[in-house]
Nucleic acid binder design. Structure first.
Length: 583
RNA sequence: GCGCUCAUAGCUCAAUUGGAUAGAGCAUUUGACUACGGAUCAAAAGGUUUGGGGUUCGACUCCCUAUGGGCGCACCA
């Protein structure tokens, strides 16, 4: 059983073939001119080009053929060859009843894939900052969308748990506590069970060490040595590393939890790094490694490139692995461990060239076979309300947590006054996360946008809180109806134009989901949620459902409310937005 | 220097497989209603889609060009 629109598209396709035309598929879109019909088909114009015929002529043939079936309330041709279809009320009513029976009707998928997603990238020993917001929101929503469409999904937090930052932190810990056993090469006893540093310590140590290394060459050199020692697997440093990891991971997880962001796998760069020797040996066999300026590289440029793609730096001239190599090794590991059909990377658009190099190297070396898709899914930058990079008042980097706190405070004083204490806290959390997430997902993925917590937290307008409020109100209405023992098990009659518009909008869900999935951007879904909620609020505001005397109309309205309510819950869930009982 | 990317209403954003009259929200102006959660609903006004050229039945969308933003160009991750 496929969705309503897909059935109609199949029907149309068969009719077009009956008329003697070849076509791969048919797409029906919501009409941009509702006065002509509910949905429109634009294919006659494209077919005209292919067959060298007048588009109106083709459209007429098709429409004449369809008219014989007497299926639609109306079908007509307008302009150069737009075919407009108006569905019969009966078919719309049937569809609402189908949806009521199975709210998942629009989520079917004949070709499920295993998709591995990388949208974490949190750095150990560093606080999550505003730059991590978008990858978390978009990545989580894409994962939920993919699995709603019955794909198998695996998300990896992909922690930045390797490289110089860790070396810097270790060096600074050593400077402050030189007597700790981790730094004593002669130490043979058991290392302490508890961490020598707290997360608060780490939050202060890394920025300090990082700044110091920039101006103090001596310090930087020590950090390099420390990094090398640690990456070579020094026993004491590994013990210290585990402490740092545990402390830091706990805190990172706490913030991700707050954002409803979940990972099936908590691996990191270090996990991929284990495979580097094995991978290098493989690459050497492939005979694709070249020497260049004392380093080892893989050429990834192609003859027909329209822009320059520099070689991938595999081994630095000092013998250590580069960032590219780590990512390549992670792909190596993921292919072996998870056998994904697709791997998706969500990062800031600035890393475009880096991933182009890595993906090319993965394909050239056959680490990834031809069938497996490597997808770079970049996103635009979030700036402050003034359009400039988002900073704290004193010019520092804003942490993700403080950003959430700002939004929470804004939302908190809009919650009903009779809700108090712990419950109020909890609801403020849910509402503010809804505000932040919804706002983050409204713009097209690649658009840079401005974060304005006052605007996003507003209860009026296209905001998360508006959607939550409206959806809670639907539930409240349904509860009242149930208490009053009013039944609503069937959709019976379309009462007015608003009801009809709502159903037409419901029909479009399948297209919206697929469009969003294909473009890897959630803006179609956020837009759709606002649209249908707003349409419903129109119905709500203009009618008294609970006191309606015509029982058929009342039951139809209540059932429609239920379908929209359930639909909204599902879509909000895909966006990673929770909904409270009240607010 | 080379390359990528963006420019749409006063503001923030849609329209991204080329489709009919470029849509929303906010702000502004006006209206509805003792109201099932008014924390609502509706209407009006607001546009030379940065400028210029091209491609075609049709261009915000594709191509060229100018201007102005953002970003990237191997041994940081």
């Amino acid at each position: 059983m496929s969705s309503f629109i897909e059935q109609e598209e199949q029907y149309l396709l068969s009719k077009i073939k009956e008329c003697g035309y070849e076509l791969d598929d048919v797409t029906l879109n919501v009409s941009s001119r509702p006065e002509y019909g509910d949905y429109q088909f634009n294919g006659a114009m494209t077919m005209a080009k292919k067959y060298g015929k007048n588009p109106r002529e083709i459209a007429t043939e098709i429409v004449e053929c369809i008219k014989k079936d007497n299926k639609y309330q109306d079908i007509n041709i307008a302009g150069p060859g737009f075919i407009n279809i108006t569905f019969s009320d009966k078919s719309l009513i049937d569809h609402v009843n189908e949806l009521n029976k199975n709210i998942n009707l629009n989520y079917e998928n004949d070709n499920p894939k295993t998709i591995f997603l990388d949208y974490g990238g949190a750095n150990v020993a560093k606080a999550l900052h505003v730059g991590h917001l978008r990858s978390a929101n978009i990545g989580e929503a894409l994962k939920r969308l993919s699995s709603s469409l019955n794909n198998k999904t695996i998300a990896d937090a992909h922690l930045g748990d390797f490289g110089r930052p860790i070396g810097l932190v270790m060096l600074e810990i050593k400077k402050r506590h030189p007597n700790l056993p981790y730094f004593d090469k002669t130490f043979t006893g058991e290392y302490p069970k508890t961490s020598p540093v707290t997360n608060e310590d780490l939050m202060e140590i890394y920025p300090y060490a990082s700044a110091k290394a920039k101006e103090d060459e001596q310090y930087m050199e020590e950090a390099r040595l420390m990094t090398a020692l640690f990456q070579d697997g020094d026993k004491g440093l590994m013990a210290l590393w585990h402490h740092i990891m545990n402390v830091s991971k706990t805190d990172i997880k706490r913030i991700y939890d707050r954002l409803n962001t979940t990972f099936e796998v908590w691996e990191g760069e270090s996990d991929g790094n284990k495979y580097i020797p094995e991978m290098i040996a493989y690459l050497e066999k492939q005979n694709i490694i070249k020497e260049s300026e004392g380093a080892k590289v893989i050429e990834v440029a192609k003859e027909d490139d329209d822009h320059e793609v520099p070689p991938l730096l595999l081994i630095k001239s000092n013998g250590s692995a580069s960032y590219e190599t780590t990512d390549l090794a992670c792909i190596w590991e993921r292919m072996k461990k998870w056998h994904p059909d697709e791997i998706w990377y969500l990062t800031d658009v600035r890393q475009a060239l880096h991933f182009e190099q890595v993906f090319r190297a993965a394909k050239i070396s056959k680490i990834v076979d031809d069938e497996t898709k490597l997808l770079f899914i970049p996103f635009g930058t979030m700036n402050g309300a003034d359009g400039k990079p988002f900073k704290t008042r004193d010019g520092g980097v804003m942490t993700l947590e403080s950003l959430l706190d700002i939004a929470k405070e804004e939302c908190e004083h809009k919650i009903l006054p009779n809700i108090q204490g712990e419950e109020r806290e909890k609801i403020a959390d849910i509402v503010s996360v809804a505000a932040v997430k919804y706002a983050d997902l409204i713009p097209y993925r690649l658009t840079d946008y401005n974060f304005d917590h006052v605007k996003f937290s507003d209860l009026q307008g296209k905001t998360g809180p508006y959607l939550l409020y409206s959806t809670i109100r639907m539930k409240s209405l349904l509860n009242k109806a149930t208490e009053a023992k009013i039944k609503f098990s069937k959709y019976i009659t379309i009462n007015n134009k608003i009801d009809r518009d709502i159903i037409i909008c419901l029909l479009n869900l399948r297209n919206v989901l697929l469009k969003s999935f294909n473009s890897k951007s959630l803006n179609d879904i956020t837009e759709y949620l606002y649209k249908i909620t707003n349409l419903y609020n129109n119905l709500y505001a203009n009618n008294r459902i609970l006191t309606e005397e015509n029982k058929d109309i009342q039951e139809s309205w209540l059932l429609l409310t239920k379908v929209i309510y359930e639909n909204n819950l599902k879509l909000l869930n895909i966006l990673g937005i929770d909904i409270p009982e009240k607010m």
